[in-house]
Amino acid sequence: MVEQAAVATGRRQRSRPLRVLIAKPGLDGHDRGAKVLARALRDAGMEVIYTGLFQTPERIARAAADEDVDVVGLSILSGAHNQLFPQIMQELRRAGLDDVLVVAGGIIPKEDIPHLQALGIAAVFGPGTPLHEIVAFIREHAPDRERGS
């Protein structure tokens, strides 16, 4: 129901579905949250590529590049975001992915957020964030590539 409302309000017209990579960097073995988000994005009509657990920054960038996604969603619970996220952003740039929208979710203390945003992570969603909010944010901020190359 909530999803339906988001579809009705937040949509920008695109001629193809958004492609989103959901990645689990680091060593925590909990991917319930990542999977719930993957399904929510699917139910919102997006094509979601889920990488599975224990991804390294290089592999995340490689998958994002080869799959040519519009959005990368990082899910992390281990507390290693301050180490891993800078590496991931660097690998994404190295792979030529300057225009992807990067968002993050999981357990991330408030005081770390400004630093992560400075790295180029567009939004950090805490554990309680309603899914439709994430969906709407992605719809709103995903790069509009229809005009670009």
């Binding site: 139910d43 009509g45 997006m46 094509e47 979601v48 590529i49 599975g52």
Partner: peptide, 13 residues
């Protein structure tokens, strides 16, 4: 998904 047109693809795993 026939309803939303979305999909979850996990082959990377």
């Amino acid at each position: 998904s026939p309803i939303t047109g979305g999909a979850v693809m996990g082959d990377r795993i």
